[in-house]
Amino acid sequence: MIQFFGKSAELQLEKDVSTRYLPVVISAMIFLAALSIGGLFSLSKAISDWSETLTGNLTVEIAFDPTADLDKKVTDAVELLSATPGVAAARAIEQEETLKLLEPFLGKNAALGELPVPRLIEVIIAEDSAIDLAALNKKLVEAVPAARLDIHRPWLDKMVLLGRSIQLLAAGIMLLIGCVTVIIVIFAVRTGLIMHSEVIQVLHLIGARDNYIAEQFQNYFSRLSFLGALPGLIVAIIVMFIFNFLVSSLEASMLPPLSVGIEGAIALLLLPVLVALLTKYTVRQVVLKSLRRMM
């Protein structure tokens, strides 16, 4: 890898003490960036999954009433829904199944059986059907007065908004990490230029072009960035695996596991290359600008 990036033969930047800790800083930056990317892509995937699941899915809720025959109401509602054009299926959710949905919030040992839990019916809308949900709700309420059609839309909209906000935050964090990395690299390069000003002057006077000198700096610093980025990325991936393991072992279904998908995985793997390229470009600009001030 060192050969790939080239060595700074004349400037001997490899022996600089001032840049020794740059890989550590880059590593920390990449760790944070990788976690941000993990969050960004996981949320994106989660939002997409929610939308997909809930778009063709409705729930009918029949309010708890100890005096009413809830089973009959459920049966009536299922019959009405099944007979409605555009509805692919209507299924009454068993009481036990409903109570299981509450477990993550109330715990397994809670006295769930004593709760005034409403009865639920899962309705699946046929694909490409143009069903009038308002008319269906009206018809349902007329037939079964305690019934209410829940189309999930408001909840989904809020979740999508929340997800997008967090995505924006993650993108902002990425941008901040990029800016901080650039600033750190600029300071390191400027220090290097000062430390090696005599050698640079000699190289200039025996005919070295600015590009020749800039290449030695950019190769060295991009190598430092690349090699610093690798451990940061590896640690971030390990942390994501640990997070997923904890989520699954705690059965905490409120927290979705981190799942970045193929695009996210590619983005993560490209991080060291991108940071090396960003460093290379930054260093080149800084060095050429500084050299232009010399004769």
């Binding site: 005599e198 200039h204 005919g207 232009r292």
Partner: peptide
């Protein structure tokens, strides 16, 4: 600025303090 390196290659300089690269 881009013309300077080619011009400098036509000039050989021996400095009083040598200015050799120690490494």
């Amino acid at each position: 600025r881009d013309d300077l390196p080619a011009m400098r290659r036509k000039i050989g300089v021996v400095y009083q303090d040598f200015r050799l690269l120690d490494h």
